[in-house]
Simulated assay, not measured.
Amino acid sequence: MRELVVLGTASQVPTRSRNHNGYFLRWDGEGLLFDPGEGTQRQMIHAGVAASRITRICLTHVHGDHCYGLPGVLSRMALDGVQHPVHLHYPASGGDVVRALVAVSSPGIDLRLHPHGSGGPIAEGLDVRPLKHRIETYGYLLTEPDGRTFLPERLRAAGIRGPDVGRLQREGVLGAARLEEVSIPRPGQRFAIIMDTAPCAGAEELAAGTDLLVTESTFSDDDGGLAQQYLHLTAGQAGELAASGKTRTLVLTHFSSRYGDDVSLLALQARARAPETTVIAAEDLQRIAVPRRRHPVRETSGETTAIGLNHDGSS
């Protein structure tokens, strides 16, 4: 299952209906928790997210609304007896803050600290890019390896069917048939999260080709001056990121309390800049599925349908 669970959508000041930040991503066997702000542990209970599902915690930066929920989450994991290693990724310059937050957590879990001080890969399939904020900040990019999409007419011609399709995918050759002869390339899925930042090259790199992009939308376009002053994005700028990156689904979050519960204006401003993108103004406890993979279609004189593979390689 690949699904985003939104635990909180407020920026610096929570409201009666919006908790501080928190985003849990189910990605096959991984459970990634991004930016657990104050109250994240309680939001997890409301959302039905078990602490035992968390395998990685990723902090974009160490402003309080993005990390003050960390002690509670770690303490709950210790209480629940989580046995697997938990990897904590964060900007290297925030080490003192992170160590202080960890120190007040209940001991008892295998917590592994992974500071990063530059852009690039930090774990298998997980990369960071520097953003432009008042302190060191990074966005996260999760990518699936590129795969193949099978062409049914070529499979039939090669006499390959049923379980043999998955075997050919795994081994690359089956009898006289080679994988590249009966399939075409298919890009893997891409998820990115961009929190506090002004427009920058790192944000553009993160957004490029994303199936699901989560990005801050702290201010409306009408408050662009404030966004520039505090190094945040407006809704329109978030939409521009999605449009330039050809994002399929854009999730807006990290809303200023000045807009109250109704952020429909921000969604409209983002959609105006990204008309080809599905734009969602997130609500607390909302669940958003990662869009199904794009299946490339090869034009032929006959059938053009393609067979895609599931995340585990089965057809």
Rank of each mutant, 00 (worst) to 15 (best):
G119K: 01
H295W: 13
F34S: 06
L285Y: 15
L226N: 07
R2Q: 13
I54R: 01
L88N: 03
L241N: 04
A267M: 11
E38N: 13
L32C: 02
L241T: 03
Q237H: 08
S105F: 12
A198N: 06
A238F: 05
V263E: 02
E153I: 02
A198R: 10
T249A: 08
A51V: 10
T300H: 13
N21E: 11
A103Y: 12
A198I: 07
I57W: 06
S75E: 04
L266V: 03
H46N: 09
Q169M: 05
T247K: 06
I135F: 03
S93W: 00
L151I: 13
E124F: 01
H133S: 14
K132G: 00
L141V: 14
R56N: 01
R18H: 10
T215W: 01
I45G: 11
S93Q: 10
A238Y: 04
I122E: 08
P91V: 10
P130A: 15
R76P: 00
P296Q: 06
E299T: 12
R271K: 14
P121E: 14
G313V: 10
E299V: 15
G188Q: 08
C67H: 08
P199S: 11
G166T: 14
Q83D: 10
L101M: 15
V6F: 03
H89R: 00
T40M: 01
V13I: 12
T253Y: 05
D28S: 06
Q229P: 00
V297L: 15
D110N: 15
I307K: 02
L113S: 08
H66W: 07
G39D: 08
H66R: 05
L174I: 07
S11M: 01
H84A: 05
T300K: 12
V5A: 10
Y138I: 01
G245D: 09
